[in-house]
Each structure stands twice: as structure tokens, then as C-alpha cells.
Design a protein around this nucleic acid. Structure first.
Length: 112
RNA sequence: AAGGACUGUCGGAUGGCUACGUGUUUGAAAGAACAUGAGGAAAGUCCGAACACCUGUUGUGCCGCAAGGUAUGACAACAAAGAGAGUCGCUAACGGCGACCAGGUAUAAGAAUUGGGGCUCGCGGAAUUGGAGAAAUCUGUUCCAUGAUUCCUGAAUCAAAGCCUAGGGAAAGUACCACAGAGACAAUACUAGCUCCGACGUCCGUCGGAGUGAAAGGUGAAAAGUGAAGUGGUGUUGAGCAAUCAGCUACGCUUCUCGCUCCAUGGUGACAUGGAUUGUGGCAAACCCUCCACGCCCGCCAAAGCCUCUCGCGGCGGCGGGUUCUGGUGAAAGAACAAAUUUGGUCGUUCGCUUGAGCCUGGUGGCAACAUCAGGCCUAGAUAGAUUGCCAUCUCCUCUGAGCAAUCAGGGAAGACAAAAUUCGGCUUACAGACAGAUCCUUGGAC
RNA sequence: CGGGCCAUAGCGCAGCUUGGUAGCGCGCUUCGUUCGGGACGAAGAGGUCGUGGGUUCAAAUCCCACUGGCCCGA
């Protein structure tokens, strides 16, 4: 789990993010981002029922993505709210591939 | 020992680096250290309860002169509403559990019955230009019929532990029972058949009416008395010249079987057994009736706290509602005032929140469900939602190759179902693999 | 956490209340009509009534449990 400072928690923030955010698509993980005016970046991971039916699978995807963010969090620029949207394939893909896809998305969004 | 049934338990282990939730300790703080952190179904949300608010009546304690306030209990008419009701128990309660009763149902090995076939043996008959012998006769072969043993096989019957049952009442009443059938639930009289009367008519016969006719008829899931055996006996059919014989059969009687009612005995009871009497469909998971139970609403997003006292422990909050002015038909919109008090809600936050109908071990009572006693233990509390990510080793599983085998080498690799959301008790559904049973039943063997 | 609805022919829907025959429209097949196609006319095929149990003589219909899909409220 991420430190509390980097979590994006409130529904209001999520609404503004989805209303105004910029989308970035990746092979395994996509994301939505917009500036938040804070010194740090905040992250949320959303896995819908359509992505994975079982609650166990959904939780597993979320944990894997969050752990990757956590290892690279020192390199990420501050000042953005980011919502990560993994695809179905992220459940069965290998850890390295998910990591590569996520880093590519970060580069696309100029977060690195 | 084999086969079957049932039940219960488990649901990888150890370690390394790293991350998060909670708690404790330490520290001025940042932080650090230690401990701890998903399930048997956490699921589906099908029942029940705890807890909480509300309505009415009311008891007790405290405060108050009183009105009343506050804390804590008890009860709840009528009505709506109930998947309550075989019996006895267990449980906080339950569409739950245990034991028993009744009914239904499935088959394994097996049992006895019967049909077909095969091997072997035996008896009898027939045939034979087979063989032996002078002959009687003996023997062989084939065919027919038949018996015994054993094997194979078919049929239906019996048949275990089990499994299933929303198991009261159909003689209180209503509704329904399609099609078919004369008639579908209380008796009807359609067609045969028979008798009489009338009309037509020579008779036969035809038509109409009245009566008789259930001991003839078929339909259907079901037709006033359930099936079987014996006997008497009626009618009818067939055979026969006839006497008579045979088949079917209403009805009566006797015996057995099934059911209602009553009585007796046994059992706490559902019921069982025996005796007597009698013989009036189904459906209540259609309405309904009886007894029983039940206050209503709501469902932890409940309820309560966030100025002060207090509580609680840190967010000392943000937004809305107010007043005045501008504006305008009005509504919106804009600006200003914000001192105190009050109100309602939303977001946030605290609490509710995890010590509980709790878990483990042992004893006692009980067939059991369960109850009770003693000792020990503390074991998740998140809220965009923690309980992890990556890796190594060991067993376990699996694939390939070598080998008679033990085993060796290499590859895959924890593999199922599935993640707390107020808390418990059940039910239902899903589930890779592993283990267990002084359980139950059947068959076989040994003593 | 609580409440409700749906599943019937290839597609869209009736039938369920009050249990006995599964039906309508479009589509499909064949034939006719036309020089040909469309339209039109005639005939026809096509159904485990989502799955599994129970009640009943009999279940798409009544009852229960599942599966899948959809909606609403706090």
C-alpha cells in the first residue's frame, strides 16, 4: 500500500479528475491525470467489475499495480492527480511486463 | 478382506528484502523497535437473533414544589401478516439441529422363481447294410423326449445401510377436476334389453309416450365396496341329441389383506398389536377452517458526539439556511454585515467497533442435539477500503527421458472455490488435492 | 445493507392471474406472380418454455433452490 500522503481518496477529487483529466493509454495499464496544485502526486487504482469478475482478482490487480508505483515513487514528478486503469490482461501478465507498460505510460504523460 | 453408505478434519511449511493497517513502548518531532493482521464457505443474501430508533400502557431508582426530566426494566388489545403445526426434545431464536414415528424411493452383492443355451452324467423310446458274437445279447453312432449337477444369459419379484417429505383438517363450506365419457361428487338414467299404451301397418317392423332396466356397454388419472382364495348360487357363452361338462360372472357366506370408527393392551408420544363394527374420490405448495405464535417501522449510511460543562481526544474545520442593500414582474445574480443564540441536513471526523449466545483442554449428565463445571487463552477492525510485491529452499502434484525396479536427470509448479465491511446462529451454493473413522450395511473367509 | 423485475422459435414479444391446445409480428424455406428483383398471394419448417427439484392424474403456468442479465433506494 502507498503511504497516505500519495493516496487519492475523496470522491470530489475523483470527479474533477475524470471531468478534466487527460487520458494516456498503455498496453496493460492506462491512466487519467490532471494537475492538482500540490507539491506531491496522488494516485488511485480503479478496477471495475467489467475488468475482472472476482473480487479476489480485482484486489490482486490493484495490489500489483500499487506495488510498482510504490517502488518508483521517488522518481515521479509532483503536482498531479493520477488514476490508473489496468486492463484485464494485467492479471495474467508477468510482473516485469506490467512494470514496463506502466513506466511507458508514465513517460508518455511526462511524469518522469 | 472386498464392496457400498455416511460423517468429520485439513485447505502447504520455512526464510530473505520491501510495503500497508492496527496496538504497545520509546522519542520534542521526524522516526524507530516489537507484536499482530481473511474463510470454510469471508460468497449468495434465503431465514433467525442480538443491538438501535419509534408508538401505546406501565413498574422501579435518581433529580424537581410541580409540570416534567433522566436511567433502567416489563407488557402490548383489534387488525394486517406466518414455508408454525407427525411426536418428544435441544436452542437466544429459526424455513435450524438431534432421536424416533409414518409414508415414499433407489440399487450393489445376494436370495428364491421362471425362460433360453452349453458341458458332463443318467433313464426311456426309435432308427441303423457300424462293430463283437453261432445266437440270446452287448456295445457304438444318430434322432426324439426327459431328469440331475454345474456354467453362461434374459425377465420380472424380494432385498441393506442410505436418501427424500411446506407429513394438521377434504364428514364446516366454496371453487376446480381439461379431453373422453350417460354421468366427475352425489348421485345421474345416454345406449342395449324387457313390459304396457297410442299411431302407421296384414305380420315382421317404424315412430311417439310411460314404466322397468346398474347382474350389459365404454371412457378416463380417478366411476358409490381394496385385492386374493374357497364355497354356494344367478346369469350368460361354448361343447353335447340329452344328461351333463367347461369358461366368465352379479350377489350371499367363510378366511386372509387394506382403510374409517370404537374398545382393550403396550408406549411420554407420533404409533404398534389384538378384538368388534362398518365400508362416502382427488386437490388445502386454490380459497379456507382449527390450534399456536405475532406491537409497528427501520437496519450500523441504525443510534449518539464535534461552542461551553461533560464526553472524547484532536479536524478546534468547510458548505447551506439568516439580516440589509443593489437588481428585477418574479426567480436568479451581485455586494456588505457577520456579535451571540438556535435549528436541520450533507461532506469530513469521533464513537458504535469488536470480550463474544467467544475459543481450547479436561470432567459430569444425556442415545444424541446440547447443557453444565473447572482450568487456560485473547485471536483482523479497513473505509477509493489494510492483511502485500518479488525471490529462495523443502515437501506435494504433474510432464518428458533413462532404468526390471529402487531411483536418477530435466521442465512446469502450490496450482480448487473464493477475500472480512455492525456482530453472531443456521440454511443454500462453489471447491484441486490430502487424511481420518472402535460409525453403519451387505457379502466372503478364519477362529 | 435493503427492495424489485426479466429469461418462451434466428430477433422482438403474447400466453402464467383461473394448471390440460404453446401463439403473434418480422425473418427463413418452397411454390405462384414478373423479362428479372422487390412488393403481393399460397403452403411449410423451426421450441429441453434458463437449470434442478417438489406439489398434482397432469406444470411454460403453482412452490422452493440455483444460474445469467437489468433496475431502484439509503
Amino acid at each position: 500500500m502507498l503511504p497516505e500522503l500519495h493516496r487519492l481518496r475523496h470522491e470530489k477529487d475523483m470527479k474533477t479528475l475524470f471531468a478534466r483529466g487527460r487520458s494516456v493509454f498503455g498496453s496493460l495499464v492506462g491512466m487519467k491525470m490532471c494537475p492538482n496544485g500540490l507539491p506531491v502526486s496522488r494516485f488511485a487504482v480503479v478496477v471495475g467489475v467489467k475488468t475482472a469478475k472476482s473480487a479476489v482478482d480485482r484486489n490482486r490487480i490493484k495490489r500489483r499495480v500499487r506495488s510498482i508505483v510504490q517502488t518508483h515513487i521517488s522518481r515521479v514528478k509532483g503536482g498531479f492527480d493520477v488514476c490508473l486503469l489496468p486492463r484485464k490482461e494485467a492479471l495474467t501478465a508477468k510482473h516485469k511486463d506490467v512494470e514496463a507498460s506502466l513506466m511507458a505510460s508514465f513517460k508518455k504523460g511526462k511524469l518522469l
